[in-house]
């Protein structure tokens, strides 16, 4: 039977966070909430890396350092993604006045060029 030790609990938590993140990203109409959902999804994925690292604990270390290094790189990349998304959103609101992703009108005529 699957051992319900601490690591598995965090694994289940990671899986749940991934599901929550994807649901939030798909369902929430507001772009800022979508960016938030992507961060939650990202933290879920990184938590899974952490669980795998923890299971790989050996040679006197609390966890396998390779996935942990990957998570650090992942967090920094996820941050730059969030920063770009937020900047794009602010620019969209500045230009169009509304913060929505639904493309009601196809690219209008003036963008024909």
């Amino acid at each position: 039977m699957a051992i319900m030790n601490a690591i598995t609990i965090f694994g289940l938590c990671a899986a749940a966070l991934v599901g929550l993140g994807i649901f939030g990203l798909i369902v929430n109409p507001q772009p800022l909430r979508k960016i938030l959902a992507i961060n939650i999804l990202g933290s879920g994925v990184f938590l899974m890396f952490g669980v795998i690292a923890r299971r790989g604990a050996a040679a006197g270390l609390g966890g396998d350092p390779v996935p942990q290094a990957m998570v650090i790189t992942g967090i920094v990349v996820a941050f730059s993604a969030t920063a770009l998304a937020v900047a794009l959103l602010l620019r969209l609101v500045l230009v169009s006045g509304a913060a929505t992703l639904e493309a009601e009108a196809e690219p209008s005529e003036k963008d024909g060029r």
Binding site: A85, L88, L89, L92, V95, S96, L101, P107, D111
Partner: peptide, 9 residues
């Protein structure tokens, strides 16, 4: 343009 920023996001 507005449409391109929305497309990019």
């Amino acid at each position: 343009g507005e449409a391109t920023v929305k497309a990019a996001l």
